[in-house]
Design a protein around this nucleic acid. Structure first.
Lengths: 336, 336
DNA sequence: CTGAAAGCGCTTACAG
DNA sequence: CTGAAAGCGCTTACAG
């Protein structure tokens, strides 16, 4: 480019960036020639100056166990990703969706972001360890359960969200609530579990909790029913609260297959919604986690960190919205 | 790092990349120290060598007129983005979701991808012009209607997909099919329109076509009905084929509000599905464009281009799957 | 107003 | 086996 315009690289740089002092005509000539030959400064070379590319990365940790962003009917991750990409754009950043940046052989780019957003980190998550060791800015959505106040994080208040549902089930007539969590050791699973345990303790009940792999989706239905309904009839739950929508869908189906009526004999609810919960019969009550708002907040924080600006803590995700559906709505007078 | 290990940068580079010849012990020492101080080579500096970052970019052009990746109930774009990100990872690339890289003030990173995927480019799309001028590799999903064979593209066969639906409507009893396209001048809208025009011509009919903004979604319902049902009764369609699921949802609602029964008096179908088409009453027949497979193919091509490998043309998106629902299913004997 | 020099943090011939 | 030099494509003091 410098050669084409017959000037030095310095002048090209000055002219195109409006820095320094360059004669008007020179600027115009350089701009014209740049347009002609389709010259654009290399983003990489520019990034090298201040080690900033204007790039954010989103690491969706549950992907690790789920192996997809698109579990059938589950749009949570995609909604996070879409909203985060949008928010990033609005702030002049690009957003990159990556898997695990600690894996050997990741592309250069996976380590080149100015700041990272890590959703649902695991206990002692190696991704956070790496990021913090390298002093790369990051914010998590849901804390690392083992390092709660060590890193900037957006609190999910998993326990509080769980209580919203537990209260609802209780009001809907449940006396004995069983909880089905996933197996990932993240704040969502652990925090929700703790909330139920505390709640049961306060009422002198033994908590009924089962952890099953998120990835198994609807398939876990039979196992959940077997687990809670094969023992002492006095110990059977009258409500099952599954953290994932697909688990709840599977439980609902399995219950009905076994002749357990939903909601008459058993209330079922999910801590996060899947499409099938809106279309199944009965439809299933869920929590809408409002991932779009969470993503927006996360991007806001990530950008601040990338630019070295201070972040106002504490940060929290929006309160989940309770979508009450048939699975927890007993017709008055028809309750068992 | 070099200083910390008491060796030259060259040796560090050799040791960490397994290139050149370095004594075993030296390699080990360097690796140990690197681990200790959390040293990782800068992705940007490495990228500068071969101007490759291992970064792909996805430019979803309809975003321009839609202003969101998440129109209520429409998961098409997100499914493309999610699947593309996944496929990229599998091939050792990161995927970046960006808006319009030609806009002034875009982040450096938006111009730093090794190859671009542009979905649904517009006629004479400036994004393609810029990319081709700068000799940045790219592939489009759906051709630029004005430069059909100029750039590598994955053919959507919009006309063929439209014919699938037109044939279905015809078999379901339609004699007069109206088409509602979007207003973006892309291959999808233009190709589908052409297919209907040809089909009508072959049957000596005047084509009934209306283009309305994609972004208006369900709102267009009334306008579509007004447009096609206010004139000469002999000229009224007995089927409306909307390219977008939200348009179809709006048309179905509006028709019913006006006392036009669906499917008895009017068949309605959509060229791409939205959630509401599966849950409305009646449910609406749609085409499933299988965005995941399209995304996977696009990434495959983009990676090949980024690595300078030849691409096997012609390329085509998978054949859409027809999801037949109530809006085009007349009970036998009950048809008008 | 313009350009030669140094530097961003690495890698790659090449010389020792 | 190791390191000094050059270079990737820019930008930023600084000198002229």
């Amino acid at each position: 480019m410098a050669r084409a315009a017959g000037v030095s690289p310095t002048t090209v740089s000055h002219a195109l960036n409006g820095k320094g002092v360059v004669r008007r005509e020179t600027v115009e000539r350089i701009e014209r020639i740049a347009a002609e030959i389709g010259y654009r400064p290399s983003a990489i070379a520019r990034g090298l100056q201040n080690s900033r590319l204007g790039l954010l990365a989103l690491v969706i940790r549950p992907f690790h166990s789920l192996d997809t962003f698109l579990p059938e009917g589950v749009d949570y991750f995609l909604r996070i990703a879409g909203a985060a990409s949008l928010s990033a754009m609005e702030r002049g950043y690009s957003m990159m969706l990556i898997d695990d940046p600690t894996r050997p052989g990741v592309p250069f780019s996976a380590l080149a972001a100015d700041a990272y957003i890590v959703t649902e980190p695991f206990e002692n998550d190696p991704v956070l360890t790496m990021l913090s060791e390298q002093r790369i800015p990051f914010v998590t959505v849901g804390a690392d359960p083992a390092r709660r106040d060590l890193f900037p994080s957006i609190d999910e208040a998993a326990g509080q969200q769980a209580m919203t549902m537990i209260d609802h089930l209780s009001q809907a007539g449940a006396h004995r609530i069983a909880l089905v969590t996933g197996t990932d050791r993240n704040d969502w699973n652990l925090g929700s579990r703790q909330a139920l345990v505390d709640w049961c303790e306060a009422r002198g009940q033994q908590p009924l909790v089962l952890a099953l792999p998120e990835a198994e989706g609807e398939q876990v239905g039979e196992r959940v029913i077997d687990h809670f309904f094969s023992g002492d009839p006095a110990e059977r739950p009258d409500a099952v609260f599954c953290l994932t929508g697909r688990h709840a869908a599977g439980v609902t189906e399995a219950a009905i297959r076994r002749g357990i009526r939903v909601p008459e004999d058993l209330l079922v609810a999910a801590g996060s919604g899947a499409m099938q919960n809106r279309t199944s019969s009965p439809t299933v009550t869920t929590l809408d986690l409002r991932p779009e708002e969470t993503a927006q907040l996360a991007v806001e924080v990530a950008v601040a960190l990338a630019e070295g600006r201070p972040v106002q803590e504490p940060l929290a995700t929006p309160t989940a919205r309770l979508d009450i559906r048939e699975s927890t709505t007993r017709a008055p007078g028809r309750a068992r």
